[in-house]
Amino acid sequence: MTMIFGVPLAVFMGQLMLGLINGAFYALLSLGLAVIFGLLKIINFAHGAQYMLGAFAALLGLQYLGINYWVALLLVPLVVGALGVVIERTLLRRIAHLDHLYGLLLTYGLALIFEGTLINFFGVSGSSYPVPEALQGGVNLGFMFLPLYRGWVLVAALVVCLGTWFMIERTRLGAYLRAGTENPALMQAFGVNVPQLITLTYGFGVALAAFAGVLAAPLYPVSPTMGSSLLIVVFAVVVIGGMGSILGAVLTGLGMGLVEGLTKVYYPEAANTVIFLVMILVLMLRPAGLFGKEA
């Protein structure tokens, strides 16, 4: 059997595959954060809670309204995204002219409210969401047994990430967005409705989080605290990639998934901390992040 540093090749490949799947979640979430930070300069601490709301909306939709997984995948991001629009219109807009710290505090407070309310009704143990019938079972890849659903998660996340990147970097709407980030006053003078652009961007970022939440529902227990633990890691990913960099967020997300996966093979005790070690290294050597522009 081929060995890689004392680990059988099959196990090694399996771990890389899993790392990539986790990385896809990191990518999807850090992408939303990066988009929001890029345009609104808001550090969206409610992102984890919005991801959790996505998973919960899918669960409750299935339990009470009979909405199946595929419909939820489309509908839930729209609903939670709309909630994001309301939050931006009623709350975030009012503090847009203040220091970033206020946005951080406000979104953190919102996250606590969402979490606390759901804990009150559902407790912390959470419930499970069934894997959709079409994606049950798995395929034998030779080096591992890959559950179909995880394969689907990887594909779906990558498609959405690439689509978002394409929209922002390659379309007219994306050009407006980027220009609005650079110089909002000038864009407004050209007749572009910048406030509306900002609202929609926040809504879109939130919808991305909710989409990730629906994808995650069949994998992890759907519980009110599922977002808060993930959020810290995702923030580390964003810092490593460089705040505001779209491509940076996606590539770093996938990369960190791989790093974590390898750590689980060679030194599992450090699996929860390795990303933060990388973050410290990056901050020391390249403070703007791997893909960030040096200020």
């Binding site: 992890y220 599992p268 005790e269």
Partner: peptide
Amino acid sequence: RHPFPTDDFSSYIL
């Protein structure tokens, strides 16, 4: 031994 708490067990299960 896995870290406490852990959300993703796939690697250990493998």
